[in-house]
């Protein structure tokens, strides 16, 4: 019985050792969806402004094949995108990765928004504070139609 156990154990150990000697490379299955998920972050190099995952140009087909190979080699999505940016520049991504260019892209509209908001605020504030340019008679543009509405309004308030 003891010998049997020893034999079994050594057999098991040998299997484990053998298994370790020959590491089974688990092949990474790369689906089209995996490729598209990366390609979606990239732009076609030849036809400008065309996202890579929907582009049929030969160059794009080749790029997607490259993505597939890199995914199969176990590289992550970020690494692959970085690879393309290093090789082809910031034009291949939807927002540049280079810090300066990224800042340029994002800060532009942000500055405009803040500026627009501030100016709007001050403009209204100023208009509120200034006196009317001409004596405030009755509403010069009020038409019958509006008064009609205002009558409806009064009814509503009841």
């Amino acid at each position: 019985m003891g010998r049997l156990i020893i034999i079994l154990l050594s057999f098991l150990i040998s299997i484990v050792v053998l298994a370790q000697d020959e590491p089974q490379p688990t092949p990474i299955v790369v689906t089209y969806d995996d490729v598209n998920a990366v390609a979606q972050q990239l732009y076609c190099p030849v036809c400008e402004n065309e996202p890579l995952h929907t582009c049929g140009a030969p160059a794009c087909v080749q790029w997607r094949e490259e993505i597939r190979e890199q995914l199969a080699a176990g590289r992550t999505s970020e690494q692959i995108v970085d690879y393309f940016v290093t090789n082809y520049g910031d034009r291949v991504v939807g927002i540049p990765q280079d810090d300066g260019l990224r800042l340029l892209s994002i800060a532009g509209p942000l500055v405009v928004l803040i500026l627009g908001g501030l100016l709007g605020f001050f403009a209204i504030q100023r208009w509120r504070n200034t006196r009317p340019m001409q004596p405030h008679t009755q509403h010069p543009t009020t038409t019958e139609d509006e008064s009609y509405r205002s009558q409806l309004e009064q009814d509503l308030r009841l």
Partner: peptide, 24 residues
């Protein structure tokens, strides 16, 4: 800015072509 401004400025002043796409 996304379609014209930033790409133009980047190309003229930084010499780098950029694409601002859906991400932006």
């Amino acid at each position: 800015w996304g379609s014209f401004g930033a790409p133009i400025i980047s190309e003229l002043f930084a010499g780098e072509e950029i694409t601002l796409g859906t991400d932006y």
